[in-house]
Amino acid sequence: MSPIGSEPYVLWSKRPGWEDLEPVPQNDAPDSLVPIAYDEFYRDAMDTFRAIVAKQERSERTLEITKLIIQMNPGHYTVWKYRADTLLQMQTNLSAELDLLDQLVKHHLKSYQVWQHRRTIVLALDDPSRELDFTAKALALDAKNYHTWAYRQWVLLHFWSSAAGARSASEEQRTVWDGELAYADKLLEEDLRNNSAWNHRFFVAFESGMGGDCGDREIRYAKEKLAISPNNPSAWNYLRGTLKRLQRPLSTCSAFAKPLALNTPADLPAGEPPISDKAELPAWLAIEYLADAAAEDAAAVKASEADAEQRRSDKAKEAADLFRSLEEFDPIRRFYYEFCAKRAESLLTPVTVCA
């Protein structure tokens, strides 16, 4: 029977317009230990495809047989490559190929080959006009799909990047990148723990060349989200990453983190984002942040500074105590926190001045 209907199946070599092809069977090793049990439809299609490759044929029927095979096996990179070469050589309607990919990607979001083929077609068209909308629809199906995010960022960098920065960027470039900030924000409004959206916002802010002096803006943004959900690891990682990018110590934001750690929202410094009355306090991730900040400060003390040994000792002990307190909140990682505490205590050794 046919795989798509009730009519009897007809071999490709017996169909009108295909009679000149002699199917080429797969060259399996004799007495192979683990032969693959292909069904007759796939085997016949592949035997026909190998016959076309043997002739190096680039034609409409090449496109027909490769379309069928990739629908049955979207991971067959050889078939994808041959199809792409055929499309480009025939100079066929590449927009129609994108229409086909629009449908295929819905069912094969995790196929490397589908995304690579789309990249090839878009490069040939030199037209990314439908790609941001397309990836947004794909992300609506799976908001954390790696392939979709990687493809979207490739489109942005390839077609709208500006090494010279915001001042020399075109209005179109600025509009696109500003839209990406809004898009990432929209996804985070829907799910504050969408680590992929956090990653994309960081990419847009710091890797696009379009953000200008955006560091303080991004610190403020992370704080606003932490004031809503202070036990969100994605937001804390974003804050850490932003400070590292700006080469600022973690203690820059310790005054913000302390009220979250101590459950004292009234002590929040003036000008900081107000803590939501629905925030889960005390926030143990704020305690971890303060512990890391104290350990970082201890390690940064220089021997030439006044009272260096005392300040280093105080910060190291503070870090160790905070790490050990975390065992109550996250007992599964208690051995990790003990390791962190001992590593902080190792900083208690006397500070020596190099000759």
Rank of each mutant, 00 (worst) to 15 (best):
Gly5Ile: 04
Ser6Cys: 10
Ser6Thr: 11
Pro8Gln: 07
Gly17Tyr: 04
Trp18Met: 09
Asp20Asn: 12
Asp20His: 13
Gln26Met: 13
Pro30Val: 03
Asp31Val: 09
Val34Ala: 12
Tyr42Pro: 07
Arg43Phe: 08
Ala45His: 07
Ala45Asp: 08
Ala45Cys: 14
Asp47Asn: 14
Asp47Phe: 01
Thr48Cys: 02
Glu60Gln: 15
Glu60His: 10
Arg61Lys: 13
Arg61Asn: 10
Thr62Ile: 09
Glu64Met: 13
Lys67Val: 08
Tyr77Pro: 05
Thr78Trp: 01
Tyr82Ala: 03
Thr86Met: 02
Leu87Pro: 05
Leu88Arg: 14
Gln89Arg: 11
Gln89His: 14
Asn93Tyr: 07
Asn93Asp: 15
Leu98Met: 05
Gln103Ser: 09
His107Ser: 11
Ser111Gly: 03
Val114Phe: 05
Thr120Asn: 13
Asp126Ala: 12
Pro128Gln: 00
Leu132Met: 03
Asp133Trp: 09
Phe134Asp: 08
Phe134Glu: 07
Thr135Pro: 04
Thr135Glu: 04
Lys137Asp: 14
Ala140Asn: 07
Asp142Asn: 15
Ala143Ser: 13
Asn145Tyr: 02
Tyr146Trp: 01
Tyr146Ile: 02
Tyr151Glu: 05
Arg152Tyr: 02
Arg152Pro: 00
Gln153Leu: 08
Trp154Phe: 01
Val155Asn: 09
Leu156Ser: 01
Phe159Trp: 01
Ser162Gly: 10
Ala164Leu: 13
Ala166Glu: 12
Arg167Thr: 15
Arg167Met: 12
Arg167Gly: 09
Ser170Asp: 04
Thr175Gly: 11
Trp177Pro: 02
Trp177Phe: 08
Asp178Gly: 08
Glu180Val: 04
Tyr183Ser: 10
Ala184Glu: 00
Leu188Ser: 01
Leu188Met: 04
Leu192Arg: 09
Arg193Cys: 06
Arg193Ser: 10
Ser196Ile: 01
His200Tyr: 08
Phe202Asp: 03
Phe203Glu: 06
Phe206Lys: 00
Gly212Cys: 04
Asp213Gln: 07
Cys214Trp: 11
Asp216Lys: 09
Arg217His: 11
Ile219Asp: 04
Ala222Lys: 04
Lys225Leu: 13
Leu226Cys: 12
Leu226Ser: 11
Pro230Phe: 02
Asn231Lys: 06
Trp236Met: 01
Trp236Val: 05
Trp236Phe: 07
Asn237Gly: 12
Tyr238Asp: 05
Leu239Asn: 05
Arg240Lys: 15
Phe256Arg: 00
Lys258Trp: 12
Ala261Lys: 00
Ala261Pro: 00
Pro265Asp: 03
Pro265Glu: 07
Asp267Lys: 10
Pro269Cys: 07
Pro269Gln: 06
Ala270Glu: 15
Gly271Thr: 06
Gly271Glu: 01
Ile275Cys: 06
Ala279Val: 03
Glu280Ala: 15
Glu280Asn: 12
Pro282Gly: 01
Ala283Val: 06
Leu285Val: 02
Ala291Ile: 01
Ala291Tyr: 00
Asp292Ala: 14
Ala293Asn: 03
Asp297Ile: 12
Val301Tyr: 00
Val301Thr: 08
Glu305Gln: 14
Asp307Leu: 09
Asp307His: 13
Asp307Met: 11
Gln310Gly: 06
Arg311Lys: 15
Lys315Trp: 06
Lys317Pro: 09
Lys317Gln: 14
Ala319Asn: 13
Phe323Pro: 00
Glu328Phe: 13
Phe329Asp: 06
Asp330Tyr: 11
Pro331Ser: 02
Pro331Asp: 03
Arg334Ile: 07
Phe335Ser: 15
Arg343Pro: 08
Glu345Pro: 02
Ser346Trp: 08
Thr352Ser: 15
Cys354Arg: 11
